[in-house]
Nucleic acid binder design. Structure first.
Lengths: 201, 201
DNA sequence: CAAAATATTGTATGAGCATACAAAAATTTG
DNA sequence: CAAATTTTTGTATGCTCATACAATATTTTG
């Protein structure tokens, strides 16, 4: 029984923090706001968590999971390496999530992680996961030295599109971002490799 | 005489703010830190500026000018449109400035500009300048509807590389970033257009 | 040089916030 | 149901910081 209520409250606070994060970014996250968003009184946070940073940590994991679920779902459906690569690209731009406020919130997480070792570890983890997913699509069609460069290119295009969405004066839509990245990826691979990837499960 | 000392102090404070910005990002900028960095006592800021935000505003302009000078210098030397495009790309990655702390500071500026209309205007201005520079290189070799997409692609690669530098676990060097962007740009344009651009002054 | 103007210092004030915690309320237990 | 335990509330404390400003120092002017 004790476990249960504790888990529920922690989860509610994490989700409250997530909603506040999407609206105000990391800097707009105050303990008061988190608790209010979770429908609890302001002091409750320090009862269920050591401090605000702990909530932040779990909130970011939660936020990442929301996006990763989109990626994973699409990857599972993909019948071959090429479609898996497309699944990764498309999964990183879900219609409902590719939005200025949210993009900005993610940016603020990047900024914060430069000064918080815990968040930095998370950030590295997310990045390694993305890199390893991309690698697994192309490692059979190019030599080992070429892979990192290709991976960096795709990652830069994905992150860059989010940054663009957050900040640029001419906003890009998710369809445009996907299309743009897909086009550049096709250039980089060439039709021979794309064909090959379509043949590998 | 009055003008002179006022201008000097304002400039010193702006440069102090710039140094603090590079080290700590926008969030690490306190009035005390700015004044200390400028070698003055903590109260001086409100004598020469309306408030901290005004210093911030001028500091960001200053910071942008440092990079833009790199771009402009290279552009002036470029004999044709292709070299001008390369000048823009290379100018956005000066050896001494393409560094994690600085990249992070810029990111924090992007985040802040989402909530500060003054900074947002600056940010739009910077972006329009970049877009217009890129456009002017390619507007003779592609039809008008294709230009924005190409511009977005290059801008995304530039911004994305900075984001990558700030945050990714595998850091990219300026040479690698330039090379990667150049490669993707060549793919996107094709050798015919590149050849054409080399012929247009 | 003395009076006036200007520049600089150091600090007081108050706002916003994280955190701890005493008191109150709700729930569980015997 | 009453005592014990758990959960929740509301607030007090202390910190960091921006800003204003009185007091002091420096420079200018006549």
């Amino acid at each position: 029984m004790k476990r249960s209520i504790e888990d529920i409250r922690r989860q509610e606070l994490i989700e409250g923090a997530y909603r506040a994060f999407l609206q105000f970014g990391i800097d707009g996250l105050t303990t008061a706001r988190i608790c209010k968003e979770a429908g609890m009184s302001p002091g409750i946070l320090s009862y269920y968590f050591k401090n605000k940073d702990e909530v932040l940590f779990w909130m970011v994991r939660h936020a990442n999971r929301v996006i990763m679920d989109e990626v994973v779902t699409r990857m599972k459906r993909a019948p071959n390496r090429w479609d898996r690569l497309l699944a990764i690209i498309e999964g990183n731009f879900p219609e409902t999530l590719f939005e200025q406020n949210i993009a900005n919130a993610w940016l603020s997480f990047y900024v914060a992680s430069a000064r918080d070792p815990q968040l930095e570890r998370l950030q590295r983890l997310f990045h390694r996961r993305l890199a390893s997913n991309i690698s697994s699509c192309v490692d059979q069609v190019m030599d080992d030295e070429s892979v990192p460069r290709f991976v960096a290119m795709v990652a830069i295009l994905i992150d860059g599109s989010w940054l663009h969405r957050a900040a640029a004066s001419t906003k890009i839509s998710n369809a445009e971002a996907i299309d743009l990245i897909k086009t550049q990826v096709e250039y980089a691979l060439g039709s021979a490799k794309v064909g090959e990837m379509k043949r590998i499960k």
